[in-house]
Design a binder for these strands. Structure first.
Lengths: 157, 157
DNA sequence: TATTGTTATACTCTATAACTATA
DNA sequence: TATAGTTATAGAGTATAACAATA
């Protein structure tokens, strides 16, 4: 039966927003690090891709260029991100984390991970493995660039 | 090893926001139903719990009372939700979906589910089962309110 | 006094449209 | 002309604080 695919879709629809919402509440409650989920994800991406452009981050996160410009602008004003014009192509900017950005991101990451770990602690080893495998299965599917690609495909088709 | 729990936490942190973000983008792209993810979830909850109070929804979704008041107010103005004072306790309000609310929610649900189904279609049967099981494991952990969760169980059963 | 909800105020998130600068 | 990014404007999401009404 392809009943499983519908059950699966329904389960994702019910569950993932609840997880992210709980994460948002947790991150806001943690007074140590004042980062929203998008800010956190942006910092993480820039940390993993030093010197990336605004378009790179926007595509990965799944936001429009103007939205990301505003978001990054806030991070620059908070001195968490360094935004410099690119020498080779002066239309571009290169983004890197400042020392403060690294610190804040690390602290937020550790805090959120610790909270998540507490939430997951009642699970059996088997359940954890199942969850881990599921996340590995889902991540490539919902990678923002993939979604954008298929959307474009569908539009041009 | 408790290494798996950290891997697991990290995987959830990386993956679930990407899924929800993709969902948000999709829902916004679908011009048919102009619902945000929180609006959609609120409509779903009220549909499953007709006559519920503002506090009930706020707790389930994981929002503060004022935030939910504003959100619901928008839904009332759009004629998707009926908000009436409760006879027994006049401090409370009772929330129900209007006919339009049912229609809009159903359409949004169907549309999002169809999109999700397309995204999941490349997966093997085994992968789907893994994902489904993972969602069933995670949902009770991150449900914003235990009370609402058990109520939902009773209602949906 | 405690509970339910609303209003006031102020951010952030996010989009589209219009613009600038560079290629 | 096409691309990278910013600015202007607007609306939704969300919080805290202060308030009103009811129990």
């Amino acid at each position: 039966m392809n009943d499983s695919i519908h059950q699966c879709a329904r389960a994702i629809l019910d569950t993932t927003p609840a997880i992210v919402q709980a994460m948002r509440v947790e991150m806001r409650a943690e007074r140590l690090h004042e980062l929203s989920v998008p800010q956190f994800r942006t910092l993480a991406f820039i940390g993993r891709h030093p010197g990336c452009s605004l378009s790179d981050v926007a595509e990965f996160i799944g936001m429009t260029l103007p939205s990301m410009s505003v978001l990054v602008n806030g991070l620059v004003e908070d001195d968490l991100v360094l935004r410099q014009p690119c020498r080779i192509d002066r239309r571009r900017v290169t983004l890197t984390l400042t020392a403060a950005g690294v610190t804040v991101h690390t602290r937020a990451l550790d805090g959120t991970l610790a909270w998540l770990t507490r939430q997951l602690s009642p699970l059996s080893e088997l359940d954890r493995v199942t969850v881990l495998r599921a996340m590995d299965i889902l991540r490539p599917i919902f990678d923002a660039s993939q979604v954008a690609a298929t959307t474009q495909e569908a539009t041009t088709a």
